[in-house]
């Protein structure tokens, strides 16, 4: 599992980060983001790539678990 921290980044940087990471085609990834747009955009990218996304919110920050 690869863990990525995209907190402090604005779109499209978190999506570019997950796009690069997913080139290794691992079964699961975890990414932390700190805004609604990044949460939605990374979710869209992961779902398009065939992953199921589970989102946990904690004080305005989001942890996205992406699994094949």
């Amino acid at each position: 599992m690869t863990t990525l921290d995209a907190r402090g980044l604005s779109c499209p940087e978190p999506v570019i980060m997950i796009q690069k990471a997913m080139k290794t085609k691992e079964a699961s990834y975890v990414m932390m983001v700190d805004n609604h747009a990044s949460k939605e955009n990374v979710t869209r990218f992961a779902e398009k790539a065939g992953y199921t996304v589970t989102i946990k919110e904690n004080g305005g920050e989001y942890t996205l678990e992406m699994r094949k």
């Binding site: 499209p12 747009a37 955009n41 990218f45 398009k48």
Partner: peptide
């Protein structure tokens, strides 16, 4: 690109 999440924050 929308399906891939290249959406500006303003859209949300």
């Amino acid at each position: 690109f929308a399906e891939m999440g290249f959406i500006p924050a303003g859209a949300y």
